[in-house]
Simulated assay, not measured.
Amino acid sequence: MGFFRTYRSLFLLLSGILAGSIAGSIFGERIAVIKPIGDIFLNLLFTAVIPLVFFAISSAIAHIDAGKKLGSLLGIMSLVFLATILISAFLTIIAVWVFPIHQEITLTHATNITQPGNWGDQLTRLFTVNEFYELLSRHNMLPFIIFSGLVGFATMRTGKLGLAFRDFLYSGNEVMKDLLNLIMKAGPIGLGAYFAYQVGTIGPKLFETYSQALGLYYGFGIFYFIVGFTAYAFVAGGIPGIKIFWKNNIIPSLTAVGTGSSIATIPANLEAVKKMNVPQDIGNVVVPLGATLHKDGSSISSIIKMAVVFGMYGKGFDSPSVILMALGVTVIVSIVEGGIPNGGYVGEMLVMSIYGLPIDALPPLMIIGTLVDPLATILNATGDNVAAMMVTRFMNKRGT
């Protein structure tokens, strides 16, 4: 019963999608009459996510203790996190090439995914806007995230003078998290209605695309969990490192499945890394920060979601510019998702914003994210343990 309580929202969401699929199959294009229900849900989600991202990111940075000089530990940890996220993303891109998700489905009229102009123009549009009000648009998520981070950093630097504003950011974060949870209670109805419309107007081809994506995610995700983590453990401690990692990673893995949360797995991870010979001062920094910033499972799902959307619109996912952009987006998504309830939806909106995708692309991204959540949680949570082992190894090599 505990397992069903943990994943209650997931089961309700899947039930709504299943009911919508059946209705769409039965009524066909006549089901389009309920599409406004799905549109209302998505509009509420788009509206709430902007203030949520601001308060979540700025509050998290504002509450960092500027007096703690973590020095080389913080630097090595950041490099390990970045390296494993990029490795998982690049290997996923290779998997997408080997097992292509090429089903082309026209959700709306043709859209231009790639941004026009030279690299300088693209970077300017990607990271900045020239008017403050433009930050509040979902089409400019990345500049908004950067602005939120700068506000948090400025609040941290002001110390006692910024205490009242820091409390405001924390309070706003709590309010907006609860607002998103309230909106997501309508998820089974909203996504069910939207999925009914898609099935009724597009047909069975939709299921083929989702099955390809899920098969690729679970197949590659399990491979990465076993082979990738084993390789990282070998880097951290050779053959003994592999043995000690897998011997003590079972309980965190089960905890991640049972709780469905990287944050809730922190206590099990902290206990596990002690047995993996990770010093307490390293484990106490790497594991909690990793739960927020280090998400290999989200990295893999981010690439697959992008490949699915590109396939749906008949776009290639193989040019150097697309690959570099996808790797950059994946790193940002993996960081942004942490600490935000239903954080995957924020990442999906970021993908839509950067590639200029229409609103119709969001439901497929959300559905895939929901279906891969159990394995993604295991990868996100337990990846912090092997990362802590590698940080320990590199710290020892530096003699720090």
Results as ranks from 00 to 15, higher is better:
P279K: 04
M389W: 03
F81P: 01
S262R: 00
L375N: 00
S58T: 05
G38N: 11
Y133R: 10
F144D: 02
S21G: 15
Y210T: 04
A62P: 03
P358M: 10
S58M: 09
L179H: 09
V351M: 14
G200D: 03
L214A: 06
G16F: 03
M312N: 03
F144T: 01
G241Q: 09
D178G: 08
S302F: 04
T92Q: 08
L362T: 07
D39I: 15
L327I: 05
S253C: 13
I367M: 11
M312E: 10
V286I: 07
I94Q: 09
F168E: 13
P252E: 02
M276F: 01
G328W: 04
N277P: 00
E104A: 12
G221N: 03
I87G: 09
L179I: 15
L70P: 01
S171A: 10
V386M: 13
E104W: 12
S58C: 12
R393N: 10
Y194C: 12
M349C: 05
V346G: 08
M349F: 15
V175I: 15
F229N: 12
Y7K: 02
G260W: 00
D318A: 13
F11P: 01
G190P: 08
N284V: 03
P320W: 11
S78M: 09
L362N: 11
I94E: 08
G172C: 02
F41G: 12
